[in-house]
Structure formats: structure tokens, C-alpha cells
Design a protein around this nucleic acid. Structure first.
Lengths: 188, 188
DNA sequence: CGTTCTGTTGAATGTTTTCAACAGGGGTGG
DNA sequence: CCACCCCTGTTGAAAACATTCAACAGAACG
């Protein structure tokens, strides 16, 4: 576990792009990162939200196949591949991280494949409530409506309508500029 | 790399269920396996199709969180966890397998999140054409319409309609009972 | 203070689903 | 061997849901 000073990036700056050479692994020390893919026709799919302590990607050779962008101010450290194979603790850590990611992607597949718009958005908030909570227990949502739409496979209008309805019906309460609290059943 | 006689299972029999204890890893020696999840309300999401040479899951502790079923007659071998940590070659193999799976799940997310019904089914066939080809180059499709629907997040009727249309328009040709050849653009 | 970008809301449209009926194939038992 | 049955797959019509198009509101920025 080499000690190094983390690299700092400001909110809303790219961490890397698809096509960049994949050298070291990247560990997020603090902040939130969004991982996404862009298609030829401009459509975008948000693949995952990465939070402090997690690895951002798992590619150690070839080119990176996706983009990563800081949603908040972040700190990251690089992990050289050499560490990975030589240090047993790192190997286990990477293995665990991959399992977590596989698990999240699996849930993402289930969310997209089987759920209605309302269910998708509810599940999205629920998934994030585990990992993006403020000290007060609210959900910190550093994403735009468009980004939420691109995660849930919906349009920005559909997302906006659902938020409006849940806020109107007090099932969701805005506790700050970008923080929410789930106050009721979001199913319907 | 312990040599062991593989366990044989007949087509359409379960390999394991969600809730079973996760002990060893399972490597598929021959045949095709379908990995899926079932929800409380009966909805099913097919997560992945596993082909010869690949690992079926990556859980080494706790309970398995998904189901696996043989689509054809299969042969599997178990890999004890001890092998995994002690043998460098196995460790690398597992990492590679996890990366492949992450990659496929990522594409699955993109397929479900951003594509129309026709695009989903076309992409599904395209993804499988890499891994389920007969010696003649055709796609071997050991899945029912319902299973294809549960992979693509569509209904069985929508899948049926698209197959009918593509077969009628000769963009897809049935070369056998369950084998197809892509003969044109499936986009529309 | 104006401009621009993000978000909201309404109405019309379109795609996929739902509901329903029917066709076909494979297996079983007579 | 054939008839029957059950299960899978197909097709049509109606309905539901999310999207598209459009206009507007409001916040963030210089």
C-alpha cells in the first residue's frame, strides 16, 4: 500500500475518456464519479456511480472503453499494476471491488429490463441512498436530470414529471439544493 | 490445475438456485448455461449466457444470489477457493473472466437502457453470434421466445413479431430447428 | 441585468404492451 | 400408429405507457 499524495480534480471535469490508454487502476479517495458510455448517435448511457474508497475501472491493458467524470470535487490515487500482482492485500481488494461492481451492474440490468419508469427511478434513488447519504441521512444527488435520465434509460421529461409528482405528493422531500429525503412509498 | 472428471447435467436442468451456499467456483467445460434472477412478483431477468470455458459465477462466500440452468447438455467442474488464492494462473484466469463478464453486463445495460425493441433483439443476436456459432457459422439459439424476451426486457409477443418480420423479409434465415443465419440489416 | 442553460409542464404522437384467439409441434397414452 | 392434449409460438386489435414536440419558468452565470 504505497502512500502517495492524491490527484485532485474539480467538480464537472473529466477523469478520463474512452480511448485513453489503460495503465494503472484508479482509486477514488473522496468525492463522487460518474462512469458512462457515449454512442455514435450521441445517446449516452450512465453505467455507474462511484463513491469514495472504490475503484473506478478494472482495465489494465489496451484502451479504456468508457468515460469517467467527477460529479463533485474529487481526490484519486493511481495503483500501478505491479502492486496488484505482488501484494496479496491489493489482489483481494480488487477482487472484492469487481464483485461489488458486478453486483451493481446486475441490479442495473434488472432495473432497466423489468421495471416501469416509476419503478426505475425509485430503485435508482434507493440504490443511491446506500452510498450517497449526507450526515443527516438524506440523499445527496449531484446529478442533473439528464444524467438521471441517462442512468435510468428514460427521458429528461419523464424523470422531471416523476420528481414533480413525488414532491407534490410529499413522498419525496427536498431538504436542500440537491438533497432529498424519501418520505413515503415511491412505487406508484 | 487439478484434473477431475466433470459433472454432467442434462439440458433444461438447474445447475444451482439462488440461496444455495456459495462454495467453489464453477467452470463450464461444455454446453451453454443461462444465468438469471427471479423477482417476488414472478418477473424474470436473464442476466447472461455462459458458454464453454467460462466461469458461471464469482461468489465464494455467502449465498448465491441468482439461478443457473443448463440450456444444453453440459459438463462442469468445481474450482475450490484454495486453488484460487494459491495458484497464480487461476487468479489471472478469474480476473480475466470477471472482466469479460463486466464487459458483457455493461453492454447489456447499454442494450436495455438506450435501444428500441428492434435494436435490442438485433444486438442480442449479434452478441450471441460471437459465442454460439455452429461449425457452419450459424447462430445456435437454445433459448425459448420467453427466455429471449426476459433477456431483452421485452414481451414474448414483441420478440415473436420481430422474428416473424425479419424472417418474412429474409433478413434472417432459419437454417435449422433452432439455428439462424443473419442475412441482412436487422436495424429496422 | 440580460443571457443561457436547466428544469417543468401540457398536448399529441408513437411504440410496446396487454388481451385474446388461434396455429403448430412434440409427446403420451390408447 | 394415430388421436389427443398441452405447451410454445404467432397474429390481430385495443389499450397503456413513455416519448416527442413545444412553450415557458427559473436558476446560474457573466
Amino acid at each position: 500500500m504505497t502512500l502517495q499524495t492524491p490527484r485532485r480534480l474539480k467538480a464537472r471535469t473529466p477523469l478520463y475518456h474512452a480511448g485513453d490508454p489503460a495503465r494503472d487502476l484508479v482509486k477514488l479517495v473522496s468525492g463522487v464519479v460518474m462512469v458512462f458510455q457515449i454512442f455514435e448517435d450521441g445517446r449516452r448511457q450512465v453505467l455507474d456511480i462511484v463513491t469514495a474508497g472504490e475503484l473506478v475501472h478494472f482495465q489494465i491493458e489496451g484502451e479504456l472503453d468508457h468515460h469517467a467524470e467527477a460529479l463533485t470535487d474529487i481526490e484519486v490515487i493511481s495503483i500501478p499494476v505491479s502492486e496488484l500482482t505482488q501484494n496479496r492485500a491489493w489482489t483481494e481488494f480488487v477482487f472484492d471491488q469487481m464483485r461489488d461492481r458486478l453486483d451493481r451492474e446486475r441490479r442495473h440490468v434488472a432495473l432497466l429490463g423489468q421495471k416501469s419508469a416509476a419503478e426505475r427511478l425509485a430503485e435508482f434513488l434507493f440504490l443511491l441512498s446506500d452510498r450517497l447519504t449526507t450526515p443527516l441521512g438524506d440523499i445527496e444527488l449531484p446529478m442533473s436530470r439528464q444524467e438521471i435520465a441517462d442512468y435510468t434509460g428514460l427521458t429528461i421529461e419523464t424523470v422531471s414529471r416523476l420528481f414533480s409528482r413525488w414532491l407534490r405528493e410529499r413522498r419525496l422531500v427536498a431538504t436542500g439544493r440537491r438533497t432529498y429525503r424519501i418520505a413515503g412509498c415511491l412505487a406508484a
